[in-house]
Design a binder for these strands. Structure first.
Lengths: 336, 336
DNA sequence: TGACGTTACTTATTCGGTTTAGTGCATACA
DNA sequence: TGTATGCACTAAACCGAATAAGTAACGTCA
């Protein structure tokens, strides 16, 4: 039992394939009566369009793609991506769009995935994350001319549309808050140094510290895992010139850092204040609850999707910076 | 600048389209010399296969689909799904398969998505979650004959292949542990009653309690949110015949329940013992740390994917039950 | 020498739609 | 009366590959 095609409908209705196509797609060129008959027959024999055939004639796929370059098993642990994806899905599902997600091992695999998706018309557009310094993906996507929205950093996005994450504002808010409390020796447990948003935050730190006339923050780079966060914290807290406050580039590391402080017999926030970048349930559950720079990540993802859909629709949305994060003071920050 | 097709290669090489197709697909029918020349030209002019056209001739899409019927914004909060997806991705990415993810509002939308994906050859197979009592999706998917693996319950899966979650073993382990500690008045904060795995757990509870000669556990049904978990806990803990132990159907509710117990001035585990079903970082971070029924959810997802890929490859893998969850005793359980 | 098999192709068809270029007929207008 | 216009529709090309069927050239063997 093969599935019915428009040819079957045409035969039954006694008209040509072309007429059936016009009728089914609300094109002019058929009488109301014929259109009615064609639709009735289509319904009766259970015809559904074959999207592959449609796509061959240039129809959109109603799918956007996202490739993630990180160990797949981290996905379930790292709240940022899941929240981002949930926001993306929320926006897409309202438009009956699907999200194609693929985890890849390295840049080359990632680029290969983009090429394949685009060449096979599997996606109508892409969301690009984790921009790096001199990112080779930018050039490729510019050349392929895939509708793409870069999430995170604007600086390295080339001619692609971007939705910047406003990291500078976050740094300013955190540092000014700590300095107001009386801190002067700040440290930062940063993420991967090759990620553009790490660079942006580092530059912002340097600038803000200089502006407030305090020594530059000591920065330790990590890979975002709890283990490296703990190790970095241990190193900072046992150094001669111990910082009185540490800002972490994600919540997982901040929480690991808190455990390290306890384990070293230091009181938080008495001996050292801690701030997590990106809030999550985790931050509210630890003791004392973690002060955090919070942003509405699902909304961020949703906004990126809206931009992408505009781009796909042929408009040319402007690159812009997202809402700045806001500090939620909780129990891990206080006077030094 | 149109993208090159095999016709362009054929023209350049001075052979027919058919010969080019043979050469590119390692089929016999062309000489080594011609094959070399064709491949060289293909590379030179940057030819990539057009997957849509291939698919029209019956090629697989290298994508599997998953539709989730729950508010998109919950996704980022509920650890179960994200861990499942991460396991799914881990397995898929090794095979260069993509995952198509779509959040839907209701069953009809979900079924419509499956029909569309399958009719448009967008996916080679499906993963089906959250099976319900008399689930209408089963019949549709059987009829469409889409390769499908049902995750969770086997009972209602009809002729579809399933990977059962072995909830019975979990119930047995939790209840026997509590009874050994001396508990006799158990309660359960369950999930949605229409979900098949809720039913399975409920039946297992009844059976195990009867077998151990203790009164049946009082069950309250919820929607898995922290709010409902808190409300259910409040109700149970203020009832005349207060239970001495509560088992929760997820971790979010268990943690909310712990907060409620504290708020009501009850000591945990002194006055009441709590067990979460599914372990997560959250369970380790609360005070006291939460006793939990743990399973390797990413591995579960990965196993389901392997089954699905076998099914897609034309094999007929057997339905089976997953590893049983194991209890991790922490601080929220003790003698009554 | 002719029948038969290979090899290395070419030609034509197929997948299921969309789309363009007609075609036959009725009506309208100069 | 001849011509322009519009409508409803048909026939055929097209999208880009895979593939079945056909063919010419060549070698082999009885």
């Amino acid at each position: 039992m093969k599935r019915p095609t428009i040819a079957d409908i045409a035969r039954r209705a006694g008209v040509s394939k072309g007429a059936v196509s016009f009728a089914l797609n609300d094109q002019p060129g058929v009488s109301a009566e014929t259109r009615r008959r064609v639709l009735a027959i289509a319904k009766e024999i259970g015809w559904t369009p074959n999207g592959v055939a449609r796509a061959l004639s240039g129809a959109p796929s109603h799918t956007i793609g996202m490739a993630l370059r990180r160990p797949a098993r981290i996905l379930g642990v790292e709240p940022f991506f899941m929240e981002l994806i949930s926001g993306v899905e929320a926006e897409l599902s309202a438009r009956e769009y699907a999200l194609s997600l693929q985890v890849v091992g390295d840049v080359d695999a990632e680029i290969a995935v983009y090429r394949r998706w685009w060449s096979e018309r599997r996606v109508d557009g892409l969301l690009l994350c984790d921009l790096r310094v001199d990112d080779p993906r930018i050039g490729v996507l510019e050349e392929l001319a895939v509708p793409t929205v870069v999430i995170g950093a604007a600086a390295g996005a080339g001619s692609l549309v971007s939705l910047e994450s406003n990291d500078g504002a976050g740094v300013t808010e955190a540092v000014e808050y700590l300095v107001t409390l009386g801190h002067r020796h700040l440290a930062r447990v940063a993420g991967l140094p090759e990620l553009l948003h790490t660079v942006v935050r580092t530059e912002a730190f340097t600038e803000v510290c200089a502006g407030l006339d305090i020594p530059p923050a000591v920065t330790v780079f990590t890979d975002y895992t709890g283990e490296e966060g703990a190790r970095a914290t241990r190193r900072l807290l046992s150094s001669r010139n111990r910082p009185t406050a540490i800002v972490y580039d994600n919540d997982v590391m901040a929480i690991a850092g808190l455990a390290v402080a306890h384990e070293m017999g230091l009181s938080v926030p008495g001996d050292v204040s801690l701030i997590a970048w990106d809030d999550s349930v985790l931050c509210q559950l630890v003791h004392p609850p973690m002060t955090a720079l919070s942003r509405d990540i699902p909304a961020y993802g949703a906004r990126a999707v809206r931009k992408l859909l505009e781009l796909i629709a042929g408009q040319r949305p402007a690159s812009l910076a997202d809402e700045p994060p806001h500090l939620i003071p909780r129990g891990t920050t206080g006077r030094p």
